[in-house]
Amino acid sequence: MSITDLPAGVGSALDSAPSLVYAARPAPALDAARLALSRDLVLAFRKRGQLLQPLAFFALVTMLFPLAVSPELSRLRAIAPGVLWVAAMLASLLALEFLFRDDAHDGTLEQYALSGQSLTWLLFAKTIAHWLLTGLPLALMAPFAAMSLGVAASAVPGIVLIMVVGTIALSLIGAIGAALALGMKRSGTLLALLTLPLSLPVLIYGARATELAIAGNSYMAPLELLAALAVLAVTLAPLGAATAVRISLE
């Protein structure tokens, strides 16, 4: 069988070859990443229940504040940026649990590390898939949560934009923590202790930008700082996550 998908000529060359030549064409890095990403998307849509958990959690946390503080929209509007960002941070933390755990368990990460492809690149693809499944839906849901807290509809585009940039940074920073926690049996609270302090700058700039957006002012300055954090996370976090995954496989 092994000869069947080789081009004509190579098979006969192999017969006389003294040693086995690895003649299969390696997958280009981009194809490998596309496969790693689409695999996670397909898997997630087969287990849709898991997808909804972070979103339901986000809505639930948002709902706690009117009950705990006051139903007055004027008071809720004042704390809305903080509520949205704390809820988003906790929801994304909760979702991190799904990022690597299954793949570590069944040996997929091991196969990725031994694939000859860059592990950094494959984990970047996985993290992007994770963001598409959790971060992006959170960003799209944030306006509804915001409006329930008395925020005007005119602030919606700004909130979505800020949330999109912020959740990218959160997913990537969280990937390092999730990968570090892989070697341990129980990691629930530790994952929070590892990731939350590192994501505080995202919270600070994200909440400030949202506050300005809700007030109808220009939020470009904090958004640019947030984008800078996201760019930094895109360049460094996958490398950190790959190192952490290799450590967990040792």
């Binding site: 570090l180 129980r186 967990s248």
Partner: peptide, 25 residues
């Protein structure tokens, strides 16, 4: 976080390396 991560591992080698990565981050 650093101390908690180290404490979570059974063997020193992995605790060392995971902790080291966290310290650098």
């Amino acid at each position: 976080g650093f101390m908690g991560l180290r404490a979570g591992f059974d063997d020193t080698q992995r605790a060392d390396r995971a902790g080291a990565l966290l310290a650098i981050v």
